[in-house]
Amino acid sequence: MALERLELKEDTPGHVSTATYLCEASALAYLGEAEGKKAFQEILGLDATLFSVDNTQAWLATNADHIVVAFRGTESPTSLDGLKDILLTDAMNLLVVPEGRLGHDLAAAGVGARFHKGFVDAIAEIWPALLPAIEAEVKKSDRPMWITGHSLGGALALLAAWLLKRKFIAVEEVCTFGAPMIGNRTACDAFNKDLAGRIHRYVNGRDPVPKLPGLSLVANEFTHVDRERLLGPHPMTGLVEVVGGVAGKAVNGILAGTLIDEAWKGINAEVATHFLDCYRELLRG
């Protein structure tokens, strides 16, 4: 496993190496505290701390050069239940703007902006604990901030990036993998403007989660933020589908490390083509 090649690339938005690294972080976010701490250190060279409040978990992982925030998808990756609740239960699918400071910061996207209640509730749970820890890290040393998450974790990563920007904390890049939609057009337009070029929403053509939630019953339709990066030739198996399997079937895989291998394999294919393209260009020049 050539995981030494994992590297975050600053100032090159959407670099495949960054995506690979953050995909790995998103996968590790599913691990338990002790196991995850060890894996973050061994595989990504990051000193990681788990924040867990009710059903929301996030890792704050740092080293001398980077700050990575990785949100866990659902508490129990053994089944889609957690996600099903949040994506398919009507009460959760309502588009809302909550009260309080967090609500104000979301409403700042525009008076017409509405967000998915389930995701807002989830980020609201963990934010009071996570934000001060992130702020402390930024204060300690100003390093590029990377935010990532798979599935529900991807939705939380997007919200977190917006909220950090509102706190005058710069976000280098947000990579989501198979993330569902978080809000209506107004909300997404605001995210697209304020985080222009910093959001990379990796999606596999066959992954159903990014197609959820469908629409709010009454108010506004959900939509996606930019920019979508489709992986693999469309119906083909790609990175997200492999990682997407975490939620469905592969919890044993991830614990045994085989999922990481699989994900790495999927990504490696992408990396390879990039390398080839690079070489071809160089040879042509």
Partner: peptide, 27 residues
């Protein structure tokens, strides 16, 4: 909802946030 939007539209959002008056006119 259509009716509401055609009459009220997108009005300002006014709240008290942590004891401070907050007004959103964006959008």
């Amino acid at each position: 909802q259509r009716l509401y939007f055609s009459i009220v539209g997108l009005a300002e959002r006014e709240r008290v946030v942590d004891g401070r008056a907050a007004l959103v006119l964006t959008g």
